[in-house]
Design a binder for these strands. Structure first.
Length: 647
RNA sequence: GCCGGUGUAGCUCAGUUGGCCAGAGCAGCUGAUUUGUAAUCAGCUGGUCGGGGGUUCGAAUCCCUCCACCGGCUCCA
C-alpha cells in the first residue's frame, strides 16, 4: 500500500498501480468526470498514470491553468488526427498549447488550405472527440522513434528527436494518430465538447526566418459549448473596442497611403486628446522636478556613431539623409537620448546639480518591417513621453521611486487597476553581454528591486531580459479585457554616459561619471492612446473628453439660447458645442451618445424661460433640470474627483 | 521582410456560371417639418470597382504585377 496526500492534507491509502483518476473516482464520480490531468509531486502528468510510491496529488480540472493547457495540448493532437484524415502525407512539426488555445505547425506539402477548410476540420474533430479515444502513452527507444518517423517521412519530428535523449522519449496515441510527445494528456478525447479553429497563419520552423515557413492553425476547445459561446462573445467585445475602429469612429486619427504606412495622422479631436494627456503629464513632471527641453527631429550621423546605435541598428533604420552639396549625413532620430546627452554636456555639471532631469515629448522614427505595423500600437513615427535623468549611482534608487510614483499616479488617474511591473536583470551566466562594472550593475539591480518593493509593486523578475546597457523595469497593464500591454519603462543606462563622456565634478573635486535613467511613463503617445481607447471603450473620463457637452435645442427657436449657454460654459472652461441641426431631439441624443459625449444639455421653452438646462449624462440618463452654475459645479466636482488620485 | 486573407461611394456592406447606364443603408446637400431624452419625411449629389498591365466582342467578376489593410511569423534602441 502507498500513501497519496491530497491538497487539503488528507491522505488516501491505495494499492500500488492506482491512478489519479482512480483516486478521483473514490472521492466522487462527478469529480472523476472532470479530471483532465494530475499534479503529482508538483509535476503535471496524465491522470491515468499509475502511482508506484507515496506521493502528493492535486487533481487538475478545467478550473486550473494546467488543466486547460493539458486539454488544449490534447486538442492539438486531435486536430492533427483530423488533418491527417483530410490531407494524408502532411508533415507535422509542433503543436503546443498556448495562453488561449493551441496551434499546430504543419507542412502541407502540395496541399493548399484556407480558412474555408477550417469548418470541415472542426466537424471532423468533434466527430473524433465523440469516439472518446483514449490517449495512450508509450515509452519508446530513440532508434525506434526515429524509425517510425523515417517511415512516415517526417523530417521535423526526426529533427526534434535528434535533440532528445534516449530513454526519455514517449509517444502518445489516440484513435488513428500517434505523435512524439512528452505529454501529459487528458484521459480521452471525449472531454473535448466544443471546437473552434480560429486562424490560419504562417510560422517559421523553429521560429527562424531562415527556415521553411509552415502553416500554423490556431484553435481553441472547451468542455462545454456554452463556454465557447462566451469566448466568442469576448472576441466580439474586443473587436468592438479595437482602437483602430474607435479611432476612426471618434475621428481621432487616420492613416494615408500617400503619407506612408505606419505614419499616423492625428485629427483635430485626437490631437486635442493627446494635448490634454501631454499637459497632464507635463504638470506632474514639473512638480517632480523635470525640465522640459526640445530637440530637432534629425541628428548628424556622427551622433549615432558615438551613441553606438548606428553600428547596432543603422542597417535596419531609415537611411541617412544627405545634404545636397557638402555630402553631410543626418539620421531621422530613432530616440532622444543622444540629443539629451549633448544638452547635459552643454555646461559643466556639479554634484550639487544632480539629479538633472530633461523631459521632452520627442518624436522618433524607426523603420519597422511592413508586416509589423499595427494601428497606433506599432508605427514608424511616434512620440515618446521621454525623459532622461542624470544622477549619481547613489541616487538611482530614489529616482526610481519617484518615477514609479509618477507612473502609479497616471495609472490610477486613468483607472488601469490591473498592472504588474517586470524587472529585467542580467543573465549572470553571460557577463560579456553587458557593459558597465559588476559593482554598478549589482547596485542598480538592487536599487530597482528595493524601489519596487518599497512601492509595493506587483513584480515579476526576469533574468537575462536586461538591455546590454543596464537593467530595467517595465510596466505591463491589463486592459478591460485582460489583454496585457507594455507601456511605461524605466531603464538604467551605463553605456551612453561612457560613450558621450558625461561627467560631473564631485565633492572631492574629481570628475565622475553620472548614471543615466531613461524613462517614459506612457511609453509613446500613440501606443498609450491606443491602449487607453481600448481600456475605456472610447468613453474617456470627463477631463480628457474633447467635447464634454453637447447642447441640444429642441427646435431652432432655442438655438440662440443655446449659443448663450455655450458662451457661459466656455467661461467656466467647460468644452462643448451646440447641435443646431434641424433634427429632432431624439436624433441629437442618439448622435451625441454615439460620439460618446459625457453630458447632453437639452434646452427648450422651459429652460429658456427659467434660465435652466436639462442635463442628461452618458450612461446615467436624465439628471433633471438645473441652472448653469449647478451644472458647472457638477462638472467641476467630477473632474476634481477624476484627477485627485494623488499617490 | 515571409505565409495566408481582404480591397466596390466619406462609413458599413450587396453585386463572381464575364453581358443592359454598378446597387442599398448611414453620412453629406436641398426642401418640407419646429420637434422634449437613442434614428421625421421627401428629393438630390457622390464610385478611376486599390494602381498598372493582360485575356475577351465585352472585366468589379478571369490571369499577371505592384500597393495598402487584416491575421500570424520574424524583429523591436
Amino acid at each position: 500500500m502507498i500513501h497519496i496526500t491530497l491538497p487539503d492534507g488528507s491522505v488516501k491509502q491505495v494499492e500500488k498501480g492506482t491512478t489519479a483518476l482512480d483516486v478521483a473516482k473514490s472521492i466522487s464520480e462527478g469529480l472523476a468526470r472532470n479530471v483532465l490531468a494530475a499534479k503529482v509531486n508538483g509535476q503535471v502528468i496524465d491522470a491515468t498514470r499509475p502511482f508506484d510510491a507515496d506521493a502528493t496529488l492535486q487533481l487538475l480540472t478545467w478550473n486550473d491553468t494546467e488543466g486547460k493547457s493539458t486539454m488544449w495540448h490534447s486538442s492539438a493532437h486531435l486536430m492533427a488526427e483530423a488533418l491527417e484524415f483530410f490531407y494524408p502525407g502532411i508533415k507535422l512539426a509542433i503543436g503546443p498549447p498556448i495562453a488561449n488555445g493551441f496551434y499546430y505547425d504543419v507542412d502541407f506539402m502540395e496541399y493548399s488550405i484556407s480558412e474555408k477548410d477550417l469548418e470541415k476540420i472542426e466537424l471532423k474533430m468533434k466527430e473524433l472527440a465523440k469516439e472518446k479515444n483514449l490517449f495512450v502513452r508509450q515509452e519508446i527507444s530513440k532508434a525506434e522513434a526515429i524509425a517510425y518517423f523515417t517511415e512516415k517521412q517526417d523530417p521535423y519530428k526526426i529533427e526534434l528527436l535528434e535533440n532528445l535523449e534516449d530513454g526519455n522519449i514517449t509517444f502518445y496515441t489516440q484513435g488513428n494518430f500517434t505523435d512524439l510527445c512528452r505529454g501529459p494528456h487528458i484521459p480521452d478525447t471525449g472531454f473535448i465538447k466544443a471546437v473552434k479553429l480560429t486562424a490560419i497563419a504562417g510560422a517559421y520552423w523553429r521560429g527562424d526566418e531562415k527556415n521553411k515557413q509552415l502553416t500554423r492553425i490556431y484553435g481553441v476547445t472547451f468542455p462545454k459549448q456554452a463556454e465557447l459561446v462566451e469566448h466568442l462573445e469576448k472576441l466580439e467585445e474586443a473587436k468592438r473596442r479595437d482602437h483602430r475602429k474607435l479611432g476612426k469612429e471618434l475621428e481621432l486619427f487616420t492613416f494615408s497611403q500617400k503619407v506612408g504606412q505606419g505614419l499616423p495622422l492625428w485629427l483635430p479631436k485626437g490631437a486635442a486628446l493627446r494635448e490634454r494627456l501631454e499637459n497632464f503629464l507635463k504638470r506632474a513632471q514639473r512638480k517632480a522636478g523635470y525640465d522640459q527641453v526640445i530637440t530637432p527631429h534629425i541628428g548628424s550621423k556622427e551622433l549615432y556613431v558615438t551613441s553606438g546605435h548606428f553600428a547596432k541598428y543603422g542597417a535596419d533604420s531609415f537611411q541617412p539623409i544627405g545634404t545636397p552639396y557638402e555630402g553631410e549625413e543626418f539620421m531621422l532620430k530613432p530616440m532622444n537620448c543622444p540629443h539629451h546627452c549633448e544638452i547635459y554636456k552643454s555646461k559643466p555639471r556639479s554634484y550639487k546639480d544632480l539629479p538633472v532631469r530633461f523631459a521632452e515629448f520627442g518624436t522618433v522614427y524607426r523603420y519597422e518591417q511592413s508586416g509589423e505595423l499595427h494601428g497606433l500600437t506599432r508605427v514608424r513615427g511616434f512620440t515618446q513621453d521621454d525623459a532622461h535623468i542624470f544622477c549619481t549611482q547613489d541616487q538611482v534608487k530614489d529616482e526610481f521611486k519617484k518615477v514609479i510614483d509618477l507612473v502609479l499616479y497616471i495609472f490610477k488617474t486613468l483607472k488601469f487597476e490591473n498592472f504588474k511591473a517586470q524587472i529585467s536583470l542580467r543573465d549572470k551566466e553571460n557577463p560579456t553581454k553587458y557593459i558597465g562594472s559588476d559593482e554598478n550593475w549589482e547596485k542598480a539591480e538592487n536599487a530597482i528591486i528595493e524601489a519596487a518593493a518599497e512601492k509595493d509593486l506587483p513584480t515579476v523578475v526576469e533574468y537575462g531580459e536586461a538591455a546590454f546597457y543596464g537593467p530595467k523595469l517595465d510596466f505591463m497593464v491589463q486592459d478591460a479585457l485582460g489583454r496585457e500591454w507594455q507601456l511605461g519603462t524605466i531603464q538604467v543606462d551605463y553605456n551612453l554616459p561612457e560613450r558621450f563622456e558625461l561627467e560631473y565634478t564631485g565633492a572631492d573635486n574629481q570628475k565622475h561619471r553620472p548614471v543615466m535613467i531613461h524613462r517614459a511613463p506612457f511609453g509613446s503617445m500613440e501606443r498609450f492612446v491606443a491602449v487607453l481607447l481600448e481600456h475605456c471603450a472610447g468613453d474617456f473620463p470627463l477631463w480628457l473628453s474633447t467635447e464634454q457637452y453637447a447642447i441640444l435645442p429642441i427646435s431652432e427657436n432655442y438655438n440662440e439660447y443655446a449659443e448663450k449657454l455655450s458662451e457661459l460654459l466656455n467661461n467656466y472652461d467647460i468644452r462643448g458645442f451646440v447641435d443646431d441641426r434641424n433634427e429632432k431631439v431624439g436624433k441629437k441624443i442618439r448622435d451625441a451618445e454615439m460620439k460618446k459625449i459625457p453630458f447632453m444639455l437639452v434646452v427648450g421653452e422651459k429652460e429658456a424661460e427659467g434660465n435652466l438646462v436639462s442635463v442628461r449624462q452618458r450612461g446615467a440618463g436624465d439628471l433633471g433640470s438645473m441652472d448653469v452654475e449647478s451644472f458647472a459645479e457638477i462638472v467641476r466636482k467630477a473632474i476634481e474627483e477624476e484627477l485627485s488620485s494623488n499617490v
